[in-house]
Amino acid sequence: MKNKLLFLTGIVVIILCASARQRPLQRFELKGFAQGTTYSIIYYAADSLVSIAQTDSLLKRFDRSVSLYDPNSLISQFNRSAKGIQIDEPFRVLVTRAIQISKATGGLVDPTVKPLVDAWGFGVVKPTRYPNKNEIKTLLKNIGIDKIYLKGRYLHKKSAAVQLDLNGIAQGYSVDLLALLLERNHISNYLIELGGELRIKGRKPNNEPFKVGIEGISGNDLNPEPMRKVIEPGDGAITTSGNYRKHHKAGGKQVSHLMNPLTGFPMQNEMISVTVYARDAITADGFDNGFMVMGLKRTLAFLAKRKDMGAYIVYRKADGLVADTVTSGFKNKN
């Protein structure tokens, strides 16, 4: 009798396990608002494993660390401080990575660029006019990664005027943090998108790859162009930096929101947009603005031999026509 029961129980357990393994994957979609934009997460799992409440709360916590729009965030506190402050783990990761990328790009991206961003009218508070050469010279004195340093959890600044802007890299990292949340919940097929920055893993149930559209460059939100290109990036991250949407017009010239931290002036070159592939979004997002400032030739040289990172570049040729090109690290994405 006892044996029989055990036997039956065993059968039931086996059946349950088998059915669990075979339960078809369902599509789950989370849509929300964060960082002044929208985000969406698509994942495939047997059951709902992550909720919008979890992702919202993760992103709110993240804002309290590094959002310039929150006057009480750690980054706002750092910017107001005289000598620096104690920071948290996400902030530390971001600053560390931003410093590495700044070095790798010869200073063409720089976390201390905030005074320039503000002066050129792309910060939270808008000035009434553009800065002159002398004002820029003064601002440049407090710009550069040598103006900050980390000791444990304490982020020091060498002068009170040093201010951080991590907007060029933070969005990417928040996408990585969302990916980490999914993976901790054993989700291995997902696409996360926040403000046009993506992180992808796995495939759709019928073994179909995730497809990503690269937006057209008209910059016309109300009558968008068809996708410029559709790619299948595989596992990793895709981010885009572009000039076609966020800029001012002054004296018939476009003033880009992307600063060259070395000259103090907004970038001005042939680049229209760069879509970067990398293993994680903090890397892709960290480099994409740098490639914009580098320009076509230097970006192609920088990425020529790299397999772990690649770019799809849209640029304006000398004759005014729009052209595009890919680096070797991006070639297998089509």
Partner: peptide, 22 residues
Amino acid sequence: EKGTIDGVTGATRIMWNKEGGT
């Protein structure tokens, strides 16, 4: 019609509100 793709990458992407407006 955009639904044949799973995500879109672009610079400072367009924002739709909950009712699908911008």
